[in-house]
């Protein structure tokens, strides 16, 4: 059996990343991958890079990384609401200023996708969707038919994505699977403070997905964020598990499940 740890967006949450990497070490993994968006939202962006490099985490670029690497004017997050954009600009400016030139260059060196062949499974890792860096794939707006199409397009048996911030997993025809691995960066709008990553266990004739909760020191992260004068709205999300921003991109079901 081969076991892969799939990490979603880290959003500068180096504390959750540290805890997750310790958990992964305890559980054992044959490979650790991160699907991009290393920066954003959280404090001290440069702190995630040494952690990722020392543990040999194989990363791909998210929209945020692509923007930072290319010196783009915005994060390509795909928001359209003025309030969402206000906060997106704020955290992009902070992250851009506080990411070193070396780390930006390292981001630029990362591939946009990764293909793996493990135990006969053809796997594609990408950030938003196989066809677009910043496409949002929510559970309630991704039809089975559409996911089957994306699997065909990707020429893969398993596709793993992140970008939305909320995890899900769908079994499709002929044993194929689609996974949104969630994110380590912030809780997923359910009133709980932990974050998650996905563990993919592969055998020749079976692929199993488990979402592993990561209980980290979120109070310390909130204190870091206050120290860096990041918006109180962001800190509230870390402390309560409810999103206070980026709400207008949520489809009906995901929005109705949250508090705001």
């Amino acid at each position: 059996m081969t076991r892969l740890a799939l990490l979603g967006g880290i959003y500068s949450n180096y504390r959750a990343l540290e805890t997750a990497l310790r958990q992964i070490e305890q559980r054992g993994a044959d490979g650790i991958y991160c699907l991009g968006d290393l920066g954003a939202f959280g404090p001290y962006p440069d702190r995630v890079y040494p952690l990722l490099r020392s543990r040999g985490v194989e990363c791909i670029q998210g929209n945020y990384d692509n923007s930072l690497a290319g010196g783009l004017a915005d994060c390509q997050c795909g928001y359209t609401d003025p309030r969402d954009n206000y906060f997106a600009r704020l955290s992009y400016a902070y992250t851009f200023e506080n990411t070193s030139v070396e780390n930006k260059a390292w981001l630029a060196s990362l591939p946009m996708t990764r293909r793996l062949e493990v135990e006969g499974w053809r796997i594609l890792l990408c950030h938003g969707s196989p066809r677009k860096l910043n496409e949002f794939l929510w559970e309630s707006t991704s039809s089975d038919a559409f996911l089957e199409y994306l699997l065909r397009l990707a020429d893969a048996d398993i596709v793993a994505v992140t970008h939305t911030g909320i995890k899900w997993h769908r079994r499709l025809s002929a044993g194929r699977q689609f996974i949104n691995v969630g994110v380590l960066g912030r809780p997923e709008n359910n009133g709980l403070t932990h974050v998650v990553y996905a563990e993919l266990s592969l055998e020749r004739d079976a692929a199993k997905v488990e979402f592993v909760p990561v209980e980290y020191d979120f109070r310390a992260l909130a204190a870091d964020m206050a120290e860096e004068k990041l918006p109180p709205e962001f800190i509230e999300t870390i402390l309560t598990g409810w999103w206070t921003t980026c709400l207008e991109i949520l489809p009906h079901k995901e929005r109705a499940h949250g508090r705001f």
Binding site: N85, Y86, E248
Partner: peptide, 16 residues
């Protein structure tokens, strides 16, 4: 599309 949206956010926004 469904994204509840302002078409183009003004460049400089007041804090909401």
């Amino acid at each position: 599309g469904n994204v509840s949206a302002l078409i183009e956010g003004p460049a400089e926004l007041k804090r909401p």
